[in-house]
Structures are given as structure tokens and as C-alpha cells.
Design a protein around this nucleic acid. Structure first.
Length: 587
RNA sequence: GCGCCCGUAGCUCAGCUGGAUAGAGCACCAGACUACGAAUCUGGGGGCCGGAGGUUCGAAUCCUUCCGGGCGCACCA
């Protein structure tokens, strides 16, 4: 992505204010090198306060050894000569409120047209490579709704960071080495015997009972006949595990595809172990005295009768903020989940500048140790000589499924969970994705089937899509009358239209803020606001026909309004694109 | 017992990394449809931002502590 993307209006003015502060430093009104990190330039909450507001005078007054209003006077003096500024005033404790000339806003409208699908795209990420690991569900069955939120949030975050100028790797960690996939292999073996005609009866406790394993067993029966039916486990376990995992991953990929999610990398834990990555990590950590052989304390607050003290290789996670040192190997010498995961993060860190993991809240307890591990791997320049790299774990809270207000029962044991595929089929991909993004991820949420499919303004997905469809419909209708968008008479637009322009012009800022905070849900809320702004504009035409977009008797004004409407639709498309939701032509 | 997350209008939730008089939808009350798409809109009432301290020009936002809810606390994954 080019660095030469045109600056947004907000960035332009942030630069102007920065320049004004620089000039004041030169003049000695401000101490040189003053800290401008907390200087903000943003639209005020109340539009009556102008188009832009900065707190610069309040933040810097102390350093300048003066009071905020006096400093504000000096800053305003620098800005007043600017032709793009129509007014600058000092209010309250020292805010500087700017009003921009109408030409600025109309210019922004043209910028949206010129940039089209790239409007809002930013170079702020500086092409930094970011690895986002999300979903990473165990390959033991189809995707269910428990996985859904993390999948959507991770995918939207990936798109958001890409839009904000990062190179993104979408990664899925396949846990194909632990005991769960052995259980899977045994479950498949049972289905295999069943496919050969054996009466297997009820699926025993401890094995996976789901019907989705039946075709896997049938395929193995077709391929190998009765060869492994009575064979000892050692002869078939690895083979069945590999086949079963492959089948599960194929199923998971197709489930994810229903949501429009495609990962770039599927990293296998088994391969990681075959390649000796955990050993390499352990050796390096031992060299740096970050792994030692020790004995764990008995867990507190839990009564474990069969607790016995055993010496294990422990990682010094307490040195990095964890509550307890964590074993990387079990007493039989095999790797713990954490030991392998530590090596996995070391591997991921090799090719990127930052890492983000999206986890379910039920794994919250293991965040500290993995953060400790990544920090440790950067010790003293680090394993790869690049020091610690920024690493963030985002937790998404559980989703409570409701049907008409009643909780939907899910039991993993009986295999009766609500699959993602069923839900997508019932309510649609766009509804699932948007709904998952209308709440901040760390808050618990409810997902009520009855409510999310409702086609009314109570449903944000619908409300946003309706705005887009309405605009497209209006453009079609105008086209039938021989009218179309025309930038020739934009000066005919009045205050009501400008308010809408200002809303649309905030999109680039919304993208940057959301990317900075790594919170894709902010885009969903921004789109809701923009849609609301458009609907409000539209409704003025109900009471006053002079405010309708299409005015056959005023073709020039109609052209300008259609031009505005088309730009609003463009911004909605760009925003929905980040969220992976389709912008529909009609409902 | 310990750790993490959450607590904002009656309900569901925002609140732009500390800014100005805390917002939106639902619900409630009063109005508006021979329609550029009423699948909606306009106006109104409704708040100790869980409580109490602290930090500073300024706190829903940051710190401490308590209360309430959720998740977790294996050599599991």
C-alpha cells in the first residue's frame, strides 16, 4: 500500500495545529521539545462547538508556564490566517474550537468519489506485519456457536488492520497432537467398525458421540476394509488420527467459509513437535535460566486427593507477572499444551512485527503465562535477535443463545450443540457477523434468534443495509428520470446536507481509532450513526418535499444531492467491507 | 481463597485510550402516513455512570478498596 494516500481532513488539521505549536516553540512561547502526545484534535461531541476542537492549550499551559487561555490566544493567532479555517474561538477552560469553511467539506466529498473503495484506507500501519491467530478450535468436530464470536471478531480485526495499512497473516493453530485427537481417533475407529457391520451400540462415555464421525468411519472402511477392525491400537491410532483430523479440518474450513472466513496459515501442533521446536525453545530458555527443574505447589482452593509432588521442567513465568511457574513437560516427558504453545508462539514471532491471539474467555486463566512466554523469548535480544515483539491476547466473552427469550440448551457431552452452520443457514452470514460486532468483545452478549432476523430498525444490520439500499434505489429511480449524480453544483448543498458530509468524513478517523484500539466493533457503531444520519436526512423530505433528494424541477440540486447520497453509500460499503457484511442493493 | 472480564436510563448496549450539559435503540407518553422505500419519523419524561476514597485544570474513563455478576484456577486442551 502506498504511503502517498491523501491525508484526511482530520489529519491535515492535526498537522496544522502541530505546525502552529512548532512555530510557538521557535518563538520561545513554548519550551522546546514539549510533550504533545496528549494533544488531541477531534470533532467535539456537540456540533454547536464547531467542526474541530483541540485541547492543546490546556495540555501545554503548565509547561509554557502560563494559563491555558493565554496560550490559546497565541495558538489561535497562528491559525486564524489559514484560508481553510473560517473561525477559531477559545471557550471554556481553554478549548480551541475551529470551524472549517464549507469548501473543505465539499472537497472531502470529492475525495470520497476519487478514492472510492479506498476511502478511509490508511497507511498508519506502515506495512507492519501482524499475525492474528483466531478460531483455532480443536479439530474434533464441527464449528459450534461457541466458536463463532471469536471467529468473527478475529476476521473483522484482520480486515480492519489491513485497511489501516498493516500486512496481516490470518492464522489457525491446529491442536492435532494432544489427547483429544487421540480420543477422536478412537471414536472414529468405533465408527469404522460400525461401518463394517459391527453392532457397536451406544457410544461409550469419553468418546465423541457425534454423527459427523459416521462418514469418516465409512470412508476408512471403504479404504482399508476390515484390516484394522481387531488390530491393536498401536497399529491404527496414528493413521486414524491423521485421517480424522484431516476430515474435521475440511469440515471446519467449510463451516468458516460460510461466514466468509479464510485463513492464510493452518499451523499444525504435530508438525511443530516433529520439527523439534519445543526442544529448541526449552534449550534456549534453559540457557537463559528461564526454565528449571522444580516441584509445583499443590493447587490452593482445590481439594485434590491424588496430588503428588513431582519434579518437572518449569518455566519461570512468575518473573514475567504470572502467579505460578508453569510446567512445559509432563512427567512422562511429553509436552504440555503450554510447552508446545510456547514453542508455537516462538515460531509465529519469526516472521512478523506483532502478534494478536483471539481467545475465548474460558481460556482467560492462561493469558498471563503465554504473555510471560512471549516476553521471555525476547529476553536479551531474544531467540531471533529482534527482542520482544508486541503481543496482545484479546478475550471474547461467551455468547448466550436464546430463542424467543429462552436459553438454548447446549451439551457437548450428548453432542447436541448448536452448530455454526445451522445458525448461518437460519439467519444468514451478514446477520451473524454484524450482530457479533455490535457489542464490545469483552462484554457478554445474548444472541436471540427471534431478534436478529427481525427486519426492523431495532436490528442494526437491517438499519445499515436499509440506508444503503435506499440510496441505491433512489439512484436507480433518478436514473430512470434521466438524472444522475453530478458534482457540478455542490455549492447548492445546504446545512442539512453538510451535516451528513461531516458524518461521512469521519470514516477515516473511525477506521484509525478502531485500528489503534483493535476494536472492530467501533466500525459497526460508526456505520449505525452514519445510517441514522442518512435516514434523518431522508425523513426531512417526508415533511418538506423541497428537501427530497430527487427534485425534478431542480436538476442541478438533484444532481448534487444524488452525488452526496452516492458518497454516503460508498462509505457504508467501505465500512461493511471491513466487517465482511454485504452492502445490498435492495432488501 | 486467588486471577481475569464486566457493572452506565426500567431493559439491551455505546461512550472516539482523561475533555465541554453522559448518548442510542427498546419500553412508556403525545403526535405524524393518498409514500423520492412509513420495513418509518418528530417531540417528551426517565441517570448517585455499583459504593467509597484518591490522582488533576477536568474522571463513566486512570489508581486503591469494598459490593454484585460471569469465566477460570491440572502434568487437561
Amino acid at each position: 500500500m502506498p504511503d502517498s494516500l491523501p491525508q484526511t481532513l482530520y489529519a491535515t488539521f492535526a498537522a496544522k495545529i502541530d505546525a502552529a505549536l512548532g512555530a510557538l516553540e521557535m518563538e520561545g512561547a513554548l519550551p522546546p521539545g514539549s510533550d504533545r502526545a496528549s494533544v488531541s484534535v477531534e470533532p467535539p461531541r456537540d456540533p454547536a462547538h464547531g467542526d474541530l476542537s483541540t485541547n492543546a492549550a490546556m495540555v501545554l499551559a503548565r509547561e509554557a508556564k502560563t494559563n491555558p487561555r493565554a496560550l490559546a490566544e497565541k495558538i489561535v493567532a497562528k491559525l486564524e490566517g489559514d484560508p481553510l479555517v473560517s473561525s477559531a474561538e477559545i471557550v471554556g477552560p481553554g478549548f480551541i474550537n475551529l470551524r472549517l469553511s464549507d469548501a473543505n467539506w465539499l472537497h472531502e466529498l470529492s475525495a470520497i468519489e476519487r478514492l472510492g473503495g479506498d476511502y478511509g484506507r490508511s497507511a498508519r500501519g506502515h506495512d507492519r506485519r501482524v499475525n492474528i491467530e483466531y478460531v483455532s478450535a480443536n479439530p474434533t468436530g464441527p464449528m459450534h456457536m461457541g466458536h463463532c464470536r471469536g471467529a468473527v471478531v478475529g476476521d473483522a480485526l484482520a480486515a480492519l488492520l489491513e485497511f489501516a495499512g498493516h500486512q496481516v497473516v490470518r492464522e489457525y493453530y491446529v491442536n492435532d497432537a494432544g489427547s483429544q485427537v487421540q480420543t477422536l481417533a478412537r471414536s472414529v475407529h468405533l465408527r469404522y467398525r460400525e461401518a463394517l457391520g459391527e453392532a457397536v451400540g451406544a457410544i461409550p462415555e469419553g468418546l465423541y458421540p457425534g454423527d459427523y464421525l459416521v462418514p469418516v468411519g465409512q470412508a476408512l472402511a471403504a479404504e482399508f476394509g476390515g484390516r484394522y477392525a481387531a488390530a491393536p491400537e498401536g497399529e491404527w491410532l496414528d493413521l486414524f488420527r491423521e485421517r480424522a483430523v484431516a476430515a474435521m479440518m475440511a469440515m471446519i474450513r467449510s463451516d468458516l467459509a460460510l461466514l466468509g472466513i479464510v485463513h492464510n496459515v493452518f499451523a499444525s501442533e504435530a508438525e511443530l513437535q516433529r520439527a523439534g521446536k519445543p526442544e529448541a525453545a526449552e534449550a534456549w530458555l534453559r540457557e537463559h535460566d528461564l526454565v528449571y527443574d522444580g516441584v509445583l505447589e499443590a493447587p490452593k482452593g482445590k481439594t485434590l486427593e491424588d496430588w503428588e509432588a513431582v519434579e518437572l521442567p518449569l518455566f519461570r513465568s512468575t518473573s514475567f507477572g504470572d502467579d505460578q511457574d508453569r510446567p512445559i513437560r509432563k512427567s512422562d516427558g511429553s509436552w504440555t499444551y503450554f510447552g508446545a504453545d510456547l514453542a508455537y508462539h516462538m515460531q509465529k514471532a519469526e516472521g512478523v512485527d506483532a502478534m494478536i491471539d483471539i481467545w475465548g474467555a474460558d481460556h482467560a486463566g492462561t493469558v498471563k503465562r503465554i504473555k510471560a512466554a512471549v516476553a521471555a523469548l525476547g529476553e536479551g535480544g531474544g531467540q531471533n535477535g529482534r527482542g520482544p515483539i508486541p503481543f496482545d491476547v484479546k478475550l471474547v466473552q461467551m455468547v448466550q443463545l436464546l430463542r424467543d427469550g429462552e436459553p438454548v440448551k447446549m451439551s457437548k457431552r450428548s453432542g447436541s450443540f448448536v452448530t455454526l452452520a445451522d445458525v448461518v443457514e437460519e439467519v444468514g452470514k451478514d446477520v451473524v457477523r454484524f450482530t457479533m460486532l455490535t457489542r464490545k468483545p469483552e462484554a457478554q452478549m445474548e444472541f436471540d434468534f427471534a431478534k436478529v432476523v427481525e427486519a426492523s430498525k431495532d436490528n442494526p444490520v437491517f438499519y445499515v443495509q436499509y440506508a444503503h439500499a435506499r440510496i441505491r434505489s433512489t439512484l436507480r429511480k433518478a436514473g430512470a428520470e434521466g438524472l444522475g449524480p453530478d458534482a457540478g453544483a455542490l455549492d447548492r448543498l445546504g446545512a442539512d446536507e453538510l451535516a451528513l458530509v461531516k458524518l461521512a468524513a469521519q470514516f477515516p478517523r473511525a477506521v484509525e481509532a478502531a485500528a489503534e484500539a483493535r476494536e472492530p466493533h467501533r466500525i459497526a457503531f460508526y456505520l449505525y450513526d452514519l445510517a441514522a444520519g442518512f435516514h434523518a436526512f431522508w425523513n426531512m423530505g417526508n415533511d418538506d418535499p423541497a428537501k427530497r433528494i430527487i427534485r425534478l424541477e431542480e436538476p442541478a440540486l438533484t444532481g448534487a444531492r444524488l452525488f452526496l447520497a452516492e458518497r454516503v453509500a460508498q462509505v457504508i460499503r467501505n465500512g461493511l467491507g471491513i466487517l465482511g457484511v454485504q452492502a445490498v442493493e435492495e432488501l
